[in-house]
Design a protein around this nucleic acid. Structure first.
Length: 519
DNA sequence: AAAAAAC
């Protein structure tokens, strides 16, 4: 009868220490893999890794419901390395296949294999569009243990006979929900039909919508189902804000915000590729260190721009939604939405690029007065209003009652808006005192993710516990994948990032701002 | 409406 002892223990240490944390070394991975993990400084697997790896090693199919920031990638790459390490591949017959929705994600997975497979003699190939097919064929001819592919190029090459999937006994379908969104499911079905039914399948999705469930039932046999919550550190560390300005003021407002000292590096999302180009050129013209990323750019440029941005050679990345999900950029301080996304879910995906691994993140959006419905959709999805933000020197606008004027005949769209007058635009709070950069937050330890072992619990019931700022920062929560992680989906797990105070940007006007706007 | 992915 000595509960105080236990209490003292939990009080002194992080709460999750009450349960012993799993170690990578307990997972039964071979020495060369374990050594690579050690060298990267990881000791504790994330919940999805701890749960999935033993089942994958057992040869079971796995249905993983997890976002990117949970360490999902390593939960399949590590055991795959283990399984494949026994033998070698034959020409044109890859032994395993990983399907990814975008080329950038495929590259990220490939990097994962390079990191963890450095002491093994396995090889991998990246099979994606936009790059020379001859080269890829040649690599395939030499024999590939791990093939990482986007669907289009894989099918193309298969139909040209450059590839046999008869020896492929391990299939990973990653980001299934996104594959669905992008209309890849027929392709995936086709690819799966080219594989032997005698295979092990690992299927990952951020959400488990009925349609995804149907696919899982179709592709998997008696899978071990694993669901993990989003990393707890993510939700609470993103500060959001919304600036409503005239269309013509958007670029100027953005520049003001980008000049804030708190901006270490930033992704700026646009809704259209050509707006990415325009904004990118404008920022460069104004002296910003910026790059552009969208699907119409040559593949070599896409990868090298992303690398430069990750390496810190570029401070700002202007991009389309090609980079909205899954892309992992460590330590991103800011996400800006130059346009509010058309789909509210995309907002959550976009801003999930920041505020990871316990670091504070900022997600600021620009809207025109006509974007009220887009903003409302986001706010109702997340359940939180986006605090309005003032940018000094920029005229703040109220919401318009009109829909966005489109191609000459702006339809009124008032049909179901009969309560319009009763619900005036959200008031803007000009009374907020200016707050300097979030120095208060920087001076105290970053919040530590406390949810290492809580994984399989239902997500919605988690009580919001106050930040325990007394606890020292510890980096044990970061899994091998993702360097701190990003958020890919959200399911019914809505981030609570909106409870932070408004803040005002105070940036000295610069000469060129006064001089007027170059196109 | 837009973006992504094959040539």
């Amino acid at each position: 009868m000595d509960p105080p002892v236990a209490d003292l223990h939990t009080f002194a240490d992080a709460p999750s220490d009450a349960v012993p944390e799993p170690l990578f070394s307990d997972l039964g991975l071979a020495e060369p893999i374990q050594r690579a993990i050690d060298e990267m400084g990881y000791r504790h697997p994330t919940p999805i890794q701890a749960q999935a790896i033993p089942y994958v090693l057992m040869g079971r199919d796995v249905l993983g419901v997890a976002q990117t920031g949970t360490g999902k990638t390593a939960s399949f790459t590590l055991p795959m390395l283990e399984i494949l390490s026994g033998s070698r591949a034959r020409a044109r017959m890859p032994r395993s296949l990983i399907l990814e929705p975008t080329r950038e994600l495929a590259l990220q997975v490939a990097e994962n294999f390079v990191n963890y497979g450095k002491y093994l003699k396995l090889n991998h190939a990246l099979l994606i569009g936009g790059e020379s097919m001859a080269e890829q064929k040649e690599v395939l001819n030499r024999g590939v243990d791990v093939l990482i592919a986007t669907p289009g190029r894989l099918i193309d090459l298969f139909e040209r006979g450059g590839l046999l999937l008869t020896q492929t006994r391990l299939l990973v379908i990653d980001e299934a929900d996104r594959m669905l969104d992008m209309g890849f499911i027929p392709d995936i079905e086709k690819i799966v039909s080219m594989l032997s039914p005698l295979r092990q399948t690992l299927f990952f999705s951020a959400t488990m919508a009925p349609e995804i469930r149907r696919l899982a039932d179709m592709f998997l046999q008696n899978p071990k189902e694993i669901t993990v919550s989003r990393p707890s550190s993510v939700a609470t560390t993103i500060e959001a804000g919304l600036v409503i300005v005239e269309e013509a003021e958007k670029r100027r407002a953005l520049r003001r915000m980008l000049r804030d000292d708190a901006v270490q590096n930033a992704i700026v999302f646009c809704n259209r590729k050509r707006d990415v180009d325009v904004l990118y050129k404008s920022l460069v013209k104004h002296g910003f260190s910026a790059g552009a990323l969208h699907g119409d750019l040559p593949q070599s440029v896409r990868f090298s721009t992303l690398e430069k941005f990750k390496a810190g050679e570029l401070k700002i990345l202007v991009c389309s939604d090609v980079a909205a999900r899954g892309i992992d950029i460590g330590g991103l301080s800011h996400v800006f939405n130059f346009d509010l996304p058309f789909h509210a879910e995309d907002y959550v995906h976009r801003i999930g690029r920041t505020g990871r691994a316990g670091r504070s993140g900022h997600a600021y959006s620009l809207a025109t007065p006509f974007d009220r419905t887009l903003a409302a959709a986001i706010e109702s999805l997340t359940g939180h209003p986006i605090p309005r933000l003032d940018v000094e020197g920029i005229a703040q606008m109220p919401w318009s009652e009109e829909e966005r004027p489109r191609g000459g005949r702006g339809k009124k769209g008032k049909g179901n808006d009969h309560r319009g007058p009763a619900k005036p635009p959200a008031p803007r709070h000009k009374d907020t005192p200016p707050v300097a950069a979030p120095a208060a937050q920087a001076s105290e330890p970053a919040p530590v993710a406390a949810a290492q072992v809580e994984a399989p619990l239902p997500r919605k019931a988690e009580p919001r516990r106050p930040q325990e700022q007394e606890r020292p920062v510890r980096h044990r929560d970061r899994g091998p994948e993702d360097n701190g992680a990003s958020v890919t989906g959200f399911g019914d797990d809505i981030p609570a990032f909106m409870l932070l105070p408004r803040r005002m940007f105070v940036v000295a006007p610069s000469a060129e701002d006064e001089a007027g706007e170059p196109s």
